[in-house]
Design a protein around this nucleic acid. Structure first.
Lengths: 357, 357
DNA sequence: CTCAAAATGAGTTGCGTACCTCAAAACACC
DNA sequence: GGTGTTTTGAGGTACGCAACTCATTTTGAG
């Protein structure tokens, strides 16, 4: 490299230096501000030819409405609803807590977020809750059950102009604008790889505990888990799924029976909740340190179990990120801004003792 | 629960419903708009007693200036500089790519981000680059070397009112406003736990490859790694660190010699770059499938090695998240907004084949 | 009490857009 | 060529705040 080359070189900036305004576009296109405004918002009363001319001027200058100006001009605040499972659900509490932490951020942007607790496991109740929201909210985030009635309710909301994102649990066949959550098959695969790798050279059987195989996310995780076990760890026999309905007692009893019947269990995958029950069964059988135990989500309980070495890894989907991503996506949709997919994608976190967040 | 309880109940919203404005605060405090403005921006000429009254009114109503209005009113665009390592550094390319993906987001907010390539490993050059930025930029993100000269340059910038965040590599003793990056000791601990757990019941030695122990992040990772190995896997002997200067050839040669001397190596931790060299040495010795190999960062190469099973896990720090977090933090600092620490924290990602992003 | 300094009020302008009205121009149709 | 309709222009107001000027009031020192 030549000696006189400066040690510091600036690449050109990443954004246009000259910030054009609506007025500039109007001048460029040879029309008035009002017409540009009409084109920009798809309002009627502009000849197709004129529309084209304006759009070309916009594209030519890669014009972007100033977010702040647009936001200020529209005046009214936006309302978002979070439709979440009712009951003392730790997940809902976490989401709510994280939204609470955003409160200054939200109010500085004049955003109102409301939590709506409902029985998300009853399709008709959930659908009714959703139908009741139309017109009142600019955006809705919903922990959705995949059911025709729910799908219809979501589609109705979308039809009415409300922005809809599904949270944690998706309804892929609906017209929801976005899904904020993880790929549960990949999560199951990851769990399978972890159990298999951590078991190592030992041989034996692997147990699976799930809330219910009827839940889409649980079923998908089990599917992914079995996929990996079959293809990569054929030496480890997978026992039939134990359904514990996410309840501690039921899970503990079922597992204790299972441990009694099988002395050669070396790995355990807990797909849903009921973690305390799993831990009790493990310690009750005196096998909490020998059996590789992989579960989901970082809670107060799983955090403790990880630190104690009872649990070996948790597959986590960062509820804070999900809460913020849902809000950001709804806001971007409402503003007509592009979504930063890379940013809003929820990753499958592997959490072990030493990288506990 | 009583039968008439509705299935849907709305908790109160998370933000104040009535969006107060400066005018309301002025009325509340019994002062004029001008005085509120003076208090809000720490401008002189207000009696302490009045300041208190105004601040109380602000606090009582939890008033938040409307971000959009403030942004619009200040008029001029903001300029941020990213001071990054020069040379064909994949990390810099990734950061730049992710910033490029944000370009519409940035321009809609009238933000200008400029990349400044410099020799970050030469303290005096880096310090000079930083000094040259004063006054020109509202915020600076810098991949910083921890050196007295650099620290002074950072402090000068802060003194001049420029917001400064360190990126990837921190200068904790400086007055930088924020550090965007991971805890490298914890990253090293995580790597250690992974190597130890994945080795499983086998016994043998563990090798460490680093760029240089003089680099702060490398040294910290090694420290964390050794910590875990000593306390949790005392059966695995850790060999002295092999320094490969992040160069493929040097790394390959050194490792090949090491493999020759030690037939019982069961694990390998690559702290920095030179990954291709590691892979070559492993396959050259025919031990690519037996030795547990844990490294850092998800690149084209490590992705391939993970898929091939040569590499078992990568500790990653999501460059996209880092780029966006740096921008968001600089913007929040410039606006005087609070920082969402939970959001901006860079997590230590464990990436295995099945949760590759 | 006097006078300068400090504190405060009042007001203006501008930021870029949304949204509205009203009038003028262009157009289509017979 | 006249009619009615559609399209366009011109202009205004509002949004909430920043940043400034200038006049007025209050304060405190002597």
């Amino acid at each position: 490299m030549a000696q006189e080359t400066s040690a510091q070189e600036t690449s050109e900036g990443l954004t246009v230096a000259a910030a054009l305004t609506l007025k500039d576009i109007a001048r460029e296109a040879g029309v008035s501000l009002a017409t540009v405004d009409r084109v920009l918002h798809n309002r009627p009363g502009v000849r197709p030819d004129t529309v084209r001319r304006v759009q070309e001027a916009i594209a030519r200058n890669s014009f972007q409405p100033h977010v702040a100006a647009a936001e200020l001009a529209r005046g009214r605040a936006r309302r978002f609803a979070f439709v979440m499972p009712s009951g003392p659900n730790p997940f809902m509490q976490q989401i709510e807590a994280y939204l609470g932490e955003m409160s200054t951020w939200l109010s500085a942007r004049r955003l109102n977020v409301e939590m709506i607790a409902t029985d998300v496991f009853d399709p008709s109740v959930l659908a009714a809750s959703l139908e009741a929201l139309s017109d009142d909210y600019d955006g809705v985030a919903v922990v959705a059950l995949d059911h025709p009635g729910v799908r219809a309710a979501i589609n109705d909301l979308v039809e009415a102009g409300t922005k809809v994102v599904t949270l944690v649990s998706d309804v892929p066949s609906s017209r929801r604008h976005h899904y904020v959550g993880i790929d549960n098959i990949a999560a199951g695969r990851t769990a399978g790889a972890l159990v298999g790798r951590l078991v190592g050279l030992r041989s034996g059987k692997v147990a699976i505990v799930a809330g219910s195989q009827g839940l889409r996310d649980h079923a998908e995780r089990i599917f992914g888990f079995n996929q990996v076990m079959a293809s990569e760890f054929p030496g480890l026999g997978v026992l039939p799924v134990l359904e514990g309905r996410d309840e501690d007692e039921r899970t503990e009893q079922g597992l204790t029976r299972l441990f009694g019947r099988h002395a050669d269990i070396v790995g355990l995958y807990n797909v849903g909740a009921g973690t305390q029950g799993v831990a009790n069964a493990l310690s009750g059988a005196g096998r909490d340190k020998q059996i590789v135990f992989v579960g989901h989500d970082v809670t107060v309980l799983t955090r403790r179990l990880l630190l104690q070495g009872v649990m070996d890894a948790a597959i986590s989907q960062n509820p804070g990120h999900e809460a913020r991503a849902a809000v950001r996506v709804l806001l971007a949709l409402a503003r007509g801004e592009p979504i930063l997919h890379e940013q809003e994608k929820i990753r499958i976190d592997i959490v072990m003792r030493d990288n506990l967040p």
